[in-house]
């Protein structure tokens, strides 16, 4: 398949309905419950009823927002910031659909508190785009038909990106081991392995980001 332009909106650009509602909700809650600053020298225990100011660097952009201590990074990405490429499925660290990169390493956003991601570089599937073109791992998944329903695909691609960042030329066994934290109920595994293999080869040849 030829590489073609995708009409995917840039992450964080413009105002989406979901994002607008999310930010209104967060602001309203902050007015109702008060705000705790986390920039003080001595750490303070945040009240469970209070919203806390935090700043998350996602796909290179700093997002300042109010969160509850119990909110996961997955919830904040999807429901507060409208960055919905990251998928919610099991929400218990068992399926991999919420995989994001935190400081270049794949992690489950469902088991990561938003407050714990402060100070780290967070990369979601949206952050793997090269401008308006698909990134190389994304393109490899298209070319190798590495999905059926597609629901696990963002997590698979981000996990593959994380694997290739530490091991640009993985063997098949290393791919199976490195991708074992992501389940595909359609069973597209062999095509996923093919896609990751070829994305790695492209990267090794200097075509990567």
């Amino acid at each position: 398949m030829a590489k073609k332009k995708q009409h995917t909106p840039k992450p964080g650009s413009g105002v989406t309905r979901r994002g607008f509602l999310g930010s209104v909700g967060a602001g309203a809650a902050a007015v109702a419950t008060g705000v705790t600053s986390r920039s003080e020298a001595v750490p303070e225990i945040t009240d469970p009823e209070e919203m806390v100011q935090t700043a998350l660097k996602i796909n290179g952009r700093l997002h300042r927002l109010l969160v509850e201590p119990r909110w996961t990074l997955l919830f904040v990405l999807r429901e507060r910031l409208g960055i919905t490429g990251t998928k919610a499925a099991c929400e218990r660290g068992e399926c991999g659909s919420c995989t994001v990169l935190i400081d270049d390493r794949p992690r489950y956003a469902c088991l990561t508190l938003a407050l714990e991601a402060e100070g780290s570089e967070i990369t979601t599937i949206e952050g793997l785009l090269e401008g308006e073109e698909l990134g190389e791992v994304q393109q490899a998944f298209v070319e190798h038909d590495a999905f059926q329903c597609g629901y696990c695909t963002p997590g698979q691609i981000v996990a593959a990106e994380g694997l290739l960042r530490t091991n640009p030329a993985p063997t098949e066994n290393e791919i199976l081991h490195g991708m074992s934290g992501n389940l595909c109920r359609c069973g597209a595994y062999q095509h996923i392995v093919n896609a990751v293999t070829h994305a790695g080869e492209n990267r090794k040849d200097g075509g990567g980001s």
């Binding site: 750490p43 225990i45 945040t46 201590p69 119990r70 508190l113």
Partner: peptide, 23 residues
């Protein structure tokens, strides 16, 4: 959604230990 809790992320072991007195 997780049940509500408060959260603290101290930068030293001494401070962390002081919070373990909390219920």
């Amino acid at each position: 959604m997780l049940p509500k809790f408060s959260h603290v992320r101290p930068d030293s072991l001494r401070k962390a230990l002081s919070f373990l007195d909390e219920n």
